[in-house]
Amino acid sequence: MSRLNREWHEANPMPKNPTPEQRMGWHAGHAAHCACRAMPAGVVRLFTERGVPLPAQQGDSAPADPKG
């Protein structure tokens, strides 16, 4: 993964001191719009613990691997 969507990143900064829900929302949007890196394990864990399906990464045909 290396394709940075600079416009998306500039328009969507991560909030300071985000709640878990804000982190999940930001990373879901990130996965849909940018392929610069995989979702961090801690965020994958948030989705998994809440029973929320992992969003597919842009350019991938399958959701992120929950085992990291």
Results as ranks from 00 to 15, higher is better:
Met14Gly: 11
Glu7Met: 14
Leu4Lys: 08
Met39His: 00
Gly59Pro: 00
Gln57Thr: 09
Thr19Glu: 03
Val44Trp: 09
Gly68Met: 05
Ala31Glu: 02
Gln58Asn: 14
Gly42Arg: 05
His30Val: 03
Pro15Asp: 06
Cys36Thr: 10
Gly42Tyr: 08
Ala38Phe: 15
Trp26His: 02
Met39Trp: 01
Gly59Met: 06
Leu46Gln: 06
Asn5Ser: 09
Lys16Leu: 15
Leu54Glu: 00
Ala31Met: 05
His33Asp: 07
Gln57Ser: 09
Pro20Lys: 07
Leu46Tyr: 05
Ala31Phe: 02
Ala64Val: 14
Val43Met: 01
Gly59Cys: 03
Glu7Gln: 14
Ala41Gly: 10
Trp8Cys: 00
Gly51Val: 02
Pro15Phe: 04
Pro20Tyr: 09
Met1Leu: 15
Pro55His: 01
Pro53Thr: 02
Phe47Val: 01
Met14Ile: 13
Ala35Arg: 07
Asn17Tyr: 15
Ala38Met: 15
Asn12Leu: 09
Ala31Val: 03
Gly51His: 06
Pro66Lys: 04
Arg3His: 13
Pro55Gly: 01
Arg37Ala: 08
Arg45Asn: 12
Phe47Glu: 00
Pro63Cys: 03
Ser2Asp: 14
Gln22Asn: 11
Gly42Asn: 09
Gly68Arg: 09
Pro20Ser: 07
Pro15Lys: 05
Val44Gln: 12
Asp65His: 10
Cys36Ile: 10
Thr48Arg: 11
Val52Ser: 06
Gly29Ile: 03
Ala56Cys: 14
Ser2Gln: 13
Arg6Asp: 13
Arg50His: 08
Asp65Leu: 05
Cys34Phe: 08
Pro15Leu: 04
Trp26Ala: 00
Met14Asp: 11
Met1Trp: 15
Glu7Cys: 13
His9Ala: 11
Ala32Val: 05
Leu54Trp: 00
His30Leu: 05
Glu7Thr: 13
His27Tyr: 09
Glu21Asn: 07
Ser61Pro: 12
Pro15Cys: 04
Thr48Ile: 12
Glu21Pro: 02
Gly25Ile: 12
Cys34Ser: 06
Met24Trp: 06
Arg6Thr: 14
Arg50Ser: 04
Asp65Arg: 08
Arg3Ser: 12
Ala41Ile: 12
Ala11Ser: 10
His30Glu: 05
Cys36Pro: 02
Ala64Met: 12
Pro63Phe: 01
Gly59Thr: 03
Cys36Gln: 06
Ala31Asp: 01
Thr19Pro: 01
Pro13Leu: 03
Asn17Leu: 11
Met14Tyr: 11
Ala38Gly: 13
Ala64Cys: 11
Lys67Trp: 13
Val52Gln: 10
Gln57Arg: 08
Gly29Lys: 03
Pro53Tyr: 01
Arg37Pro: 01
Gly59Phe: 02
